[in-house]
């Protein structure tokens, strides 16, 4: 990812929280607006992903599957699990591991689209943000504009590239490669417009726990997370996290 400047809309962080966050790139996670069930009259689908961070085991199955499915060049990634050893302040467990699967957020307000001088990058009616390789001139404006650093220039093709939710698979009735092979079962893919679908049901059940990355940037991401905020807040207050006998045991 590019440098993450402290976002202006970020809530004030306490000193202990800062200590806890040491080693983690500054990112903010806050409650997302519940996405509207239907966004466009002509859209049958509105594809989205939910990442339950509690289930991630950091195995990078998604990363490697994506590389192989999409012939991603060495050194570039369409998706990736950032893995951190986090110092825990005011806690007996001195450190913990934190994983954060990242990919293109397929924003409803994608900052990459308006900056494209040739109209190569656009949002499909089904919500997937794509790059038309036939138009792309490789100027990398979109790479700069993406707040999630989800894009790169493929030096084999000199085109901008990024996660497409494996549109070629989704269009064939299949799941994105990363979802298919997620060992922890952290990644859920589905249609926001399908109220009976797994994605929608999980989003609705989790409600306030559902977060997005950098909500203040107004991008309206369509990659949602469970387990982003609790982990921060839970430790920030410095409760003992190392396992101790519980007072509640009778």
């Amino acid at each position: 990812m590019k440098d993450h400047n402290p976002p202006t809309a970020a809530p004030a962080t306490s000193p202990s929280r800062r200590a806890f966050l040491r080693g983690i790139p500054v990112l903010t996670a806050a409650a997302a607006m519940a996405p509207a069930p239907v966004l466009a009259a002509d859209a049958t689908h509105h594809w989205a992903m939910l990442v339950d961070v509690r289930k991630c085991i950091g195995c990078q199955a998604c990363t490697v599957a994506c590389i192989q499915e999409n012939a991603v060049p060495e050194g570039s990634f369409r998706t990736f699990v950032s893995t951190y050893s986090v110092k825990l302040a005011d806690a007996e467990q001195p450190a913990g591991t934190y994983m954060l699967p990242r990919l293109c957020n397929h924003c409803d307000q994608p900052p990459c689209v308006p900056v494209c001088p040739v109209g190569a990058t656009f949002k499909r009616a089904d919500g997937i943000v794509v790059v038309d390789g036939d138009r792309c001139v490789g100027c990398a404006y979109c790479v700069q504009a993406c707040p999630y650093d989800a894009r790169f220039i493929n030096h084999d093709t000199d085109k901008a590239e990024k996660c497409t939710f494996c549109a070629h698979r989704v269009d064939a009735g299949l799941l994105p490669a990363c979802v298919e092979t997620c060992v922890g079962g952290a990644r859920i893919f589905g249609d926001l417009n399908d109220p009976a679908g797994e994605l929608r049901r999980r989003l609705d059940a989790a409600k306030a726990e559902v977060k997005v990355l950098k909500p203040e940037s107004g991008t309206e991401p369509r990659v949602f997370y469970i387990g982003l905020d609790e982990r921060f807040q839970g430790r920030v207050e410095g409760q003992g996290t190392l396992w101790q006998p519980r007072a509640t045991h009778g």
């Binding site: 990812m1 590019k2 440098d3 080693g23 790139p25 950091g58 990078q60 060049p73 060495e74 050194g75 570039s76 990634f77 369409r78 998706t79 990736f80 950032s82 893995t83 951190y84 050893s85 450190a95 591991t97 990242r102 990919l103 650093d149 989800a150 894009r151 790169f152 030096h155 084999d156 990024k162």
Partner: peptide
């Protein structure tokens, strides 16, 4: 997506590899 140097600073963190091999 590029991996920042600072992620190297993490346990189990992964780092971008020299482009030569690609």
């Amino acid at each position: 997506m590029k991996i920042e140097r600072r992620e190297l600073i993490a346990a189990g963190g992964l780092a971008a590899f020299a482009v030569g091999f690609s």
